[in-house]
Design a protein around this nucleic acid. Sequence first.
DNA 1: TGGAATTTGTGCGTATGTATG
DNA 2: CCATACATACGCACAAATTCC
Lengths: 244, 244
Amino acid sequence: MARTPVWKSIAISLTDDIAQRRYQTGDKLPPEVQLAGRFGVNRHTVRRALSEMADQGLVHARRGAGVFVAAQPTEYPIGKRVRFHQNVARLGRIPAKRILTLETRAAGPREAEALGLDPGAAVHVYDGLSLADGEPIALFQSVFPADGFPDLLAALKETQSVTEALKHCGVADFTRVETRITAKLATATQALHLKISEGSPILRTTGINAGPNGDPVEFGRTWFAGDRVTLTVSDPNSGKADLG
Amino acid sequence: MARTPVWKSIAISLTDDIAQRRYQTGDKLPPEVQLAGRFGVNRHTVRRALSEMADQGLVHARRGAGVFVAAQPTEYPIGKRVRFHQNVARLGRIPAKRILTLETRAAGPREAEALGLDPGAAVHVYDGLSLADGEPIALFQSVFPADGFPDLLAALKETQSVTEALKHCGVADFTRVETRITAKLATATQALHLKISEGSPILRTTGINAGPNGDPVEFGRTWFAGDRVTLTVSDPNSGKADLG
DNA sequence: TGGAATTTGTGCGTATGTATG
DNA sequence: CCATACATACGCACAAATTCC
């Protein structure tokens, strides 16, 4: 068995620092060069550790600014209409969303296929964090076709709500076509954002929402903290999942 | 807007190669140095791309051996009618079940509540292992009210099928009332049965099936190997999940 | 059996680009 | 405009695991 790589021990050390609240949520970590000095390694080695932690959602790097400590619901219905705000509010908790990144770029192959676009078509991408009562619930990434929604990003930036932004762009309603669910282990970055440990169980869902005419309008991926969230699939006929 | 990084375009290219079946499941990709030559970049840049793909579960690297295309997970529909045999057969794979234990005992509090029984009422319990093409897919435990199904265990022992056994006992059809899904880490016992590593991600589902008159007939828990299974929740109106 | 060749994993040094403050 | 700090990319070297002869 190989010994633990240096970068991994650094990641563990920093993760523990965060778990021990030596760095609070939202705090900026020392610059990479400074960390490199503190651990007596090359800056790349620190970057490897930070990259791992970023993958797990534990930290979030902002170019030119620094690396920041990233910041969960319980019962979360997956039904025909999946609405984060309503799902959380229904539990008597206060929903909130934090924008991580908003950008327009070329669609990857999976995204293009899911949205029925040509490969390389422009898409709007919304990376964010969902919170309930200020506690991180899930990381998500929503991908929208850029064509036809010119001012979607502005609406998202203003409302932070997919539902509201789409409504502003003329999509009054949308429903879930399909949801895929798998179990993963939390990466360092995910763990940071969700305030869990690296290697904790993660529920990853992938979903496609379509407008009234059946055209896909959103391809979304969500990473729930498995320890804190239970997805529920209700009897479609009961309509319970559509409340709120 | 930043242009697409080289490593990302390489990841997209290789992902497309896999999607197009130019590399099949289990195939070994060309060595990193060879890929670096093909793309005209440094080996590190290829590694960045492969790392991204490995994070997505698309490939798996074995030191000293190579990088291999990972097996795509089995799609398992969670709908109104959940039928293991049909779910697996629909994928062109051969379903099988292995009985671990069959017994009749007093219901625990959760089981009694789920089935609408008095605490301590007798229940039949079926512990087993589900396989597709001989590969373990999931561990499950099905709990049935003993009252009204005197010879259910015998039928289960003979057919190994919940559907067939219930039919034999007069329940021609049953549908899923609700499914709960969480992510867990595999225990040592679970890992042994599922032939995965301890601490691997597990998808745990809990479901109640009811007969035509709405009475609960089965309380089932299933532990899926997260690496091998993707649960899908389809649009209820499409009816696709009810096929087979 | 054993050793060489192959291939991935880790780490360091350097350089340039780009966003932030 | 400048300094800081992260993002990307190249080159080199060696370690460790596997495979092949």
